[in-house]
Computed example of a mutant assay.
Amino acid sequence: MASHFSLEPLASNLFMLYLVATPIGNLEDMTFRAVRVLKEVDLIACEDTRHSRKLLQHYGISTRLTSFFEHNERDKGEKLLVELRAGKDIALISDAGTPAISDPGYRLVRRCHEAGIGVSIVPGPQAAVSSLAVSGLPTDRFAFEGFLPARSGARRDRLTALLSEERTLVFYESPHRLAATLADLAGLCPQREVVVVRELTKLHEEICRGSAGELAERWRAEKVRGEVVLLLAPAEPVEPELDLDTVLRAALEAGEPMKEISRKLAKVYGMSGSEVYARALALK
């Protein structure tokens, strides 16, 4: 039977931007293909050349490095596009994990697509999805929210807006803000299940589960070190107390626009907006 796997480059005769995932902690998580691609490309764009050089030295990779990060993304992105148009193959890596995820690299990817430049992924470690997998929380539906706001007021506002979300929520969090974020969650939903995944794949890997109140107390005075992923269990579905027709009649009598009524009630009753609108028309 023919094999579905190939050891050949995806497009060896075309210039290409490769998104190459790198380890999030354990150096053994580097894939054979990632090492090969990083050796074969003409240039590697990375967040911190000093950090990435250690990884490349470990695997005997001598490809030229250039810095590409949030504050030089616009200018350096133009220079990388010039190199790609000149026929160079470039690999994009982040300090850890999959580039372009919660990372300015997505803008370069977009510009490559717009310019007709090929983009390929060399998959591997990714902290958000890996943490979700080991959390024990529902994985059939989830939402990645990146970093929460650093300011306490804005952070509480964001969390409040997300409390009714019926998908597992995944956040990145700074270790020095973890205690404050857990305290916010304890104030908003003390019994909601929370998982803190810390130092994933590293020597001191930790997966801590409990209610928001319990974990807030655990880390209230403890100094947190390392990379942190915070996960919040989904909200329980809220069953409407009144049947749809009763609510629709009340809203129509109050003079609310039918489109607005349909939009608001569709999610509450698990229907599409058009179904609610049709029902409102029938009642009207």
Rank of each mutant, 00 (worst) to 15 (best):
M30V: 15
H71C: 07
L230T: 06
D29Q: 11
L43F: 05
G60P: 05
D95S: 13
S211M: 02
E173W: 05
E222Q: 14
P234A: 09
R85N: 12
G87A: 05
G25M: 08
A212H: 03
D95A: 09
I261L: 07
P149E: 08
E83W: 03
F147R: 07
I121A: 15
E28W: 06
S135T: 13
R50F: 10
I24E: 01
L43K: 02
P149T: 07
P190K: 02
L182Q: 02
S272R: 15
R249F: 00
F171M: 09
K259I: 12
E214M: 07
G118T: 12
P240Q: 10
T168Q: 04
L231S: 07
P190H: 04
L27V: 13
F147V: 10
L242T: 07
A96M: 08
R249L: 12
Y269G: 08
R111L: 13
E227D: 11
E83P: 00
E173D: 11
S120A: 15
R107P: 00
A11Q: 11
L92F: 09
S12T: 05
F69I: 03
T160L: 13
Q191Y: 01
A235M: 04
A127C: 10
E241C: 00
G255A: 11
S102N: 14
V109F: 02
S274V: 13
P138D: 09
R249H: 07
G118W: 04
T63I: 08
E205Y: 09
A154S: 12
T66F: 02
R107C: 08
R249N: 01
P175M: 07
E256Q: 13
D75I: 11
T139K: 11
H51R: 14
G25D: 04
A11L: 10
F142D: 07
L231K: 06
L132G: 10
A186P: 03
D48R: 09
A86Y: 08
H204Q: 12
E114I: 02
P23F: 05
A161H: 12
I101Q: 08
F68M: 03
D29E: 14
V170Q: 03
L38M: 15
R151M: 03
Y18T: 10
Y59C: 10
C208T: 12
R249W: 00
R158E: 02
E73C: 10
